[in-house]
Design a protein around this nucleic acid. Structure first.
Length: 208
DNA sequence: AATTCGCCCAACCGCAGTCGC
DNA sequence: TGCGACTGCGGTTGGGCGAAT
């Protein structure tokens, strides 16, 4: 027996949202707030599953969303955060007000990946793709190496502590050794990565 | 003008974590 | 303590659209 489906698929709409559906969702959330996604579609009179409503709200309808192109500063910040956190899009989005994880993920896959490749860097590891280059490095390559060195110089040190619920639950957090990821001056607090905290100094990531 | 190609992004899917009973 | 329900996340897909031919 597999897990039960998140919703009754036979009676739900799929695909692009209509303006009317958007408006219903906005009206409902304005009146009742976010949450209870499972019961929201029925309460709001939408033939959608809760997951779909949540995604639509978070990625498209939320009033605090910043639409439009990413700035050069945002680009660099995403690159730094990705070097720090990997594909933790929700965490990265948390440091970019008005941007969603989906938006950043898409932007990464369509723009930044290519940007890094053109700099000769591996998009996943942020290291030079071809480290067996022979003699005669160009200025551009030297620049790339300096940039890579800059990322490595961040002296990243992440520490992951217990979540709030773990802290309040007996026999959980205190009985478990603290997990640490030595990745720089930034610590991740909570398994859900609720916040990123500076551990020593922040001068290398002044944008954060 | 018609067709093809490639890019972009909204939306879906499956999994894992968390919560409540 | 175990289990089911619910939520959130990351990977992937596919439709729309503009550029190229």
């Amino acid at each position: 027996m597999g897990r039960s489906p998140c919703c009754e698929k036979a009676h739900t709409n799929k695909g692009a949202w209509t303006k009317e559906e958007d408006q219903r969702l906005i009206d409902y959330i304005r009146a009742h707030g976010e949450g209870c996604w499972r019961s929201l579609p029925r309460a709001a009179g939408l033939l959608r599953c809760g997951k779909s409503c949540r995604l639509r709200w978070i990625n498209y309808l939320r009033p605090d969303l910043k639409r439009g192109n990413f700035t050069e500063e945002e680009d660099e910040l995403i690159i730094k955060l990705h070097a720090l956190l990997g594909n933790k899009w929700s965490l990265i989005a948390g440091r970019l007000p008005g941007r969603t994880d989906n938006e950043i993920k898409n932007y990464w896959n369509t723009h930044i990946k290519r940007k890094l490749i053109s700099r000769g860097l591996d998009p996943q590891t942020h290291r030079p793709e071809n480290n067996c280059t022979s003699s005669g490095t160009t200025d551009e390559q030297q620049q790339q190496q300096q940039q890579q060195q800059h990322i490595q110089d961040l002296n990243l040190e992440l520490s992951i502590g217990p979540t709030q619920s773990e802290l309040t639950r007996p026999n959980s957090a205190e009985s478990r050794p603290q997990q640490q990821i030595f990745a720089g001056n930034w610590g991740l607090r909570g398994a859900n990565c609720v916040e990123i905290v500076p551990l020593k100094n922040t001068q290398d990531i002044s944008l954060l």
